[in-house]
Amino acid sequence: MSVLPYLIAGWLFVIGLYGVVSSRNYMHLIGCLTVIQSSTYVLLLAIGYHEGRPAPIFSDHPSGPAVDPVVQALVLTDVVVGAAVSALLLTLVLQLKKRRGTLDPDELSPERD
């Protein structure tokens, strides 16, 4: 099996984390967080993939070997969770912008507590 998807998953994780670490804008930071999340999608789908097997949908063709539906279910759950978290984060950022007028961590950090 190809090692490429695993490399991509690793790369997405690293580049996303780099984005979070170096971000200068909270909106951008949330984007980077979803990049990290994509790495888990790629990883999970790669784990369940089998070369040449069809999708695990048996309504239109006879049942037989297929790619693993369990990881796909996991990914679906994760997509839902991710959507909830992103929505929440965007709300927080929106409220923060309203109250402080900026989303730059450098300008925000002095007035903490």
Binding site: L29, L44, L96
Partner: peptide, 25 residues
């Protein structure tokens, strides 16, 4: 203040969740 606290809480813990999911996979 609570928005900033919640933001760092959310971001760090969400990265944690992704780590856990990858580990489970």
């Amino acid at each position: 203040a609570s928005l900033e606290g919640a933001l760092s809480f959310t971001v760090v813990n969400t990265i944690g969740s992704f780590l856990m999911l990858a580990g489970i996979g």
